[in-house]
Design a protein around this nucleic acid. Sequence first.
RNA 1: GCCGAAGUGGCGGAAUUGGUAGACGCGCACGACUCAAAAUCGUGUUCCGCAAGGAGUGAGGGUUCGAUUCCCUCCUUCGGCACCA
Length: 937
Amino acid sequence: MHKRFDSAAIEKKWQEIWAEQKLYEVGERDTSKEKEYVLVELPYPSGNLHIGHWHAFAVPDIYVRFLRMSGKQVIYPMGFDAFGLPAENAAIKRNINPREWTESNIEFMKGQLQSMGASFSWDKTASTIDPNYYKWTQWMFTKFFENDLAYRGEAIVNWDPVDNTVIANEQVLADGTSERSGAVVEKKVMPQWMLRITKYADRLIDDLDNLDWPEPIKEAQRRWIGRSEGAEIDFKLSTGDTVTVFTTRPDTLFGATYMVLAPEHALVKQNKDKITNWDTVESYVKEAAKKDEQDRLNDTKEKTGVKLEGITATNPANNEEIPVYIADYVLASYGTGAIMAVPAHDERDGAFANKYNIKTVSVVYPVTGIPQENPEFRESIVAIVHNPKNDLYATINWKDPQKTLFVGGGIDSGESPEQAAVREIREETPCEHLELVSKTTTIEHSYFAHSKNVARKISAIGLLFTLTSSEETAQALEVDEADQFHFEWKDAQTIERELDDELHKTVWNMLVKKEVFTSTGKLMNSGEFNGMDSEEAKEAITKKVGGRMTSTYRMRDWSVGRQRYWGVPIPIVYDPEGKAHVVPEEHLPWLLPEDVDHKPTGEAPLAKSKELKERTEKIFGKGWTPEVETMDAFVDSSWYFLRYIDNQNDSAPVSTEAQKDWMPIDLYFGGAEHTTMHLLYSRFWQKALYDLKLVAHEEPYQRRINRGLILGPDGNKMSKSKGNVIDPDEQVKLVGGDSVKMYLAFMGPYGETANYPWDMGGIAGIRRFLEKVNGLHEHLADTEPESVTKQLHKTIAKLNDDIPVFKFNTAISAMMVFVNLAEKEGLSKESYRTFLTLLAPFATHLSEELWEQAGNTTSIHREPFPEANKELVKDDEVTIGVQINGKHRGEITIAPDASETIALVAAKADAQLAEKLGASEPKKVIYVPGRILNIII
RNA sequence: GCCGAAGUGGCGGAAUUGGUAGACGCGCACGACUCAAAAUCGUGUUCCGCAAGGAGUGAGGGUUCGAUUCCCUCCUUCGGCACCA
């Protein structure tokens, strides 16, 4: 029966009692239980919690409580990631100290967190601005510095002109603006504090394989790191310099008809004197630099560049002299900043060569590109052949020779390709039927090998070489002189129209339309490598020209220095010669000075601190100066989960004992936005610590679950300007924390990255459900119908199934079904108690209140989670669908394990079904017990 | 452009070793209670059709006794990356 309740009073009452009893503190590790470390991303104290925080923290609490009631010792910590630009900017706006602002926010947010009624392990908390925390952040940085993982290097950095600081690559959005301020990011070359994350690139990719993470997140990290396997190859310039290029396609080296340097490439300036068109070159270089600074949105289709007159390079594969260009489509910061350009097999090079009329040479032709699962098609491919004497190309289709295409020829003689080809053929074989036996002597290697071990020698069409499509060696195969082929000549348009399979289309596009073919295949026009498979040729050609197989990465080192105030001071001091030294452990924490006007001017605020300067000289001596940059806040959050589990430790960031107790993190709930930032940084950090023997695990997070976004009621992302922001405090006031939490859990499955719009009616429905639960005791009876007991056990089973896989929505739905039934049929006191414990992880306050009202003196949250009685979960009877000829025509109710005979009898007993079935005997019966009966007549 | 995820009533969603499509909730309609409204309770609610019946899980095709589920082709939406050699 529906019965209202005062959620505010109940929730406040229990929150206080729980706090007083320290009900959710974890304390020491209890080894009689299995441990479970459930982590949620610690909040940034921006002022107040938004509804997304509820979704992030309150909903996983259901899972945490379920585990705890199921007998595990669960740690579910909460803390604050409190350094960083937003707090500093907010403080500047309000003209107060960032520390004051942040700390007051933390206090306020703690109250909000309490209103969730979640079981946070408050004895295991941490705050990144606590000197006892950042002492260890600094300490680890010094270890990194000593081990060459942190270094000061020149780098092209992203400069945010509004926040007046450098930001990381990961913080630059796709449109070239800053993730922080929204300003257009500029490129600057500056000395930077960097962390050598690239050293870990391979491990960061490879170790993903062992993690229980959603595959899309892993894939996003792999792509972000962007490992490219290829080769470095040296090209000699006519100036005597050597240019190293990076390429993923060394197999196409014979097709490298020019070379491109990035405009910023050092050799450009160095050879100023030898470049005869230096003025043009110089202005292009300047233009390119400006373009880079403006924005990277400039459409990437239009390629520009300038030829370096007076300089050539030598292609090491064929010793041909090739021109050298500079072009801004080659990036200075990727690979070696120089490329070998292969216009036939790279789209960008193709576009560039087309524009500047550079020679194009095809060196790879396709053999695949055909669906693997279509063997019939594969068999039909035979080869592409080329006669360099007359530039005639042909593709031969073995199964159906009529599909053979001839392309090219006679380009220089003014003949059309068709005319030339026909002439060629006629001259060689003056008959209509081209017999595929030796008629000419120009052919050296011209074998076709059929996949069915039938070999034929083609020698009539003036083609220099052909390639086999099977493993059979050409020499071993016999010539069958009886075979004849008839080639039908068609004009180009007809041929194009009739192209009906992928290979032929590809070849046609490549050879006739001169489109760029980027796939791998087999080699041609490549000297001794002709006919070799691309993959094989990569190594072979690299080896021949003295190159090196290597990998390069999209990801750059992590720039961590910030020219701002509100962050962890980088614990480095400089001696009078300017050499960097770490601040020794006894002087840590290296405190953030207070005597600073932190307003951003572009100069680092710490440079203005007298106290910091004096401190440095006092400790290290006269002439020593402090580093004035602070650390990116992503550094702080790269290890917080380690501090949680040993937050009182004075002698180390975290003890090995605590790690043995709790690490690794069994489950990390979080948002998709951290995929390539926090999640990558902290994995790197953990690996670096691992190599320094400071942690026991190489990966911090065993399992990761990303949640979606809560949208406004209008289906849009919540924003103040749209006026669709849902304030959690207001909602809690309206319907209570239990309802807010349950509603967020009810919207949809949690483990998928789906976004759910907030629905005012929906949350009212949850509140209504809880009010029904509140009145449920009025339906108590001495005995209950078996249907109710059975439904209860089905519900128990459902919850035990659904909660571990985060399908809280269907779990709640099952409880609703039970309550609806129990209201109608009545329920026993025992069932009522059991139901309350089912509800406890969801409606933490109300279930506790009703539990107390039912006469219990200990907390419901100490109760074990119910287990279903398997006998009671089974149904005595089921209603199954009956199909006639596959169409649903009615239903019958029978025992779940009834025999086919019984099912048929039941179907015939049904008047409607009997009529449909008529008198005829069924042709076939498909009966799946408990599921379906399908009768074919 | 490339990579990834997803398309089911008016809405959020449920159902996959292939077996009654639309659980549960919202919304809506009608009824009860009320002077009235709200709240609450009851009934109904995929679409077309008075009905019998038919159609139906983004579109089209295929496999199957049977497809939201498996296969092929395509479309749309969302997310990520984007001159990365």
